[in-house]
Simulated scan of single mutants.
Amino acid sequence: MSRYSSRSSHSSTTPAIILYDTPGHTPQPWAPNIWRIRFILNYKRLRYRTQWIEFQDIEATLRSIGAPPSSVRSDGRPVYTLPVIVDPTRNPSRPEILSNPNTIAEYLETYYPARPVFPEGSRAVQSLFVHYVLEVFAKPLLPIMVPLSAKGLPERSQPPFSHSQVANALPPGPHRERAWQLVKEQFDFLASILEKNSFDGDGICAMGHYVSYADFAICSVLLWIENMAPHDGWARVREWNGGRWVRLREKCREYMDVC
């Protein structure tokens, strides 16, 4: 549990949700899909703890606990990725084991409805919004951030493909600047959409005044950039769109405990 959290006062014998995560090169978690779930757990004030798994141990560990695959390849082979949660709190003799961040988010909202991350009537719209964040908004980041993320893993956790990815990382120069320009175009577009909330909110949050699952999806991407590209990436993003992304990060700060 991080120094930012107060959950350490709970008895160690009290059942807690287990969130599986993989470490990077800094103490702060980095993976955006896992941050989405950590935000929900913190926002709902659920008791949980993080179980750290080195990258190369993910599949073996998830198979050993009976976690379902997060997806299936075209050849029928299962794919095991994080996040995964194990929830023994509802039924200690048969804990729920879930993978895939969308499945986990729906589960947590259904069975722990207090402090909803999907405000009433917004689940469909927010699900579409998060799909946009993952499939469109974040897509130009991949050529930049995936090699940096592979490079940022601990040495023994370097996946077999990471050496080629690191070798393909964009060096400083016009190609990298063009890549960041494509990223900025997505940030500019999203800022123009969120700015419409200035008429009945602060123009920062997707739902107006209060953070929700949509904001956690965006902030997860911001933390990915901040942790894996603090100088070349976050130094740029924090200045874009009048500093709105720093303000969104601050809105989400109280839900950044690492337990």
Rank of each mutant, 00 (worst) to 15 (best):
L141E: 06
E109P: 08
L82V: 08
T110N: 09
T14I: 12
V125C: 11
T50Q: 09
S93R: 10
V117C: 14
E135D: 13
Y107P: 01
R115Y: 10
R77W: 10
Q56G: 00
W30F: 08
L134T: 15
D21Y: 00
P23R: 03
A60P: 05
D57G: 01
E96K: 13
S70V: 02
P15A: 09
S93A: 14
V133M: 09
S122F: 05
Q51D: 15
Y112H: 11
L134C: 11
Q126G: 04
T13H: 11
P92H: 06
F39R: 03
G76D: 02
V117N: 06
R47M: 15
I18D: 09
L134Q: 14
T89W: 11
Q56Y: 00
S93L: 14
R73L: 14
P23V: 02
Y112P: 04
N100T: 07
S74R: 14
F137I: 02
R115D: 11
V125M: 14
V72H: 11
T103C: 08
Y43R: 03
G76K: 03
R47H: 15
A60V: 10
S11L: 13
Y107I: 01
E106R: 13
P113N: 07
F118E: 03
V79M: 12
A114D: 12
R63Y: 06
H131P: 09
Q28T: 12
V79I: 13
Y48N: 03
N102C: 11
I37P: 01
Y48K: 03
I65R: 05
V133S: 03
P116G: 05
V86P: 01
V72R: 13
H10A: 14
T14K: 15
P32L: 03
Y132E: 08
S93V: 10
Y111C: 08
Y43V: 04
S11G: 15
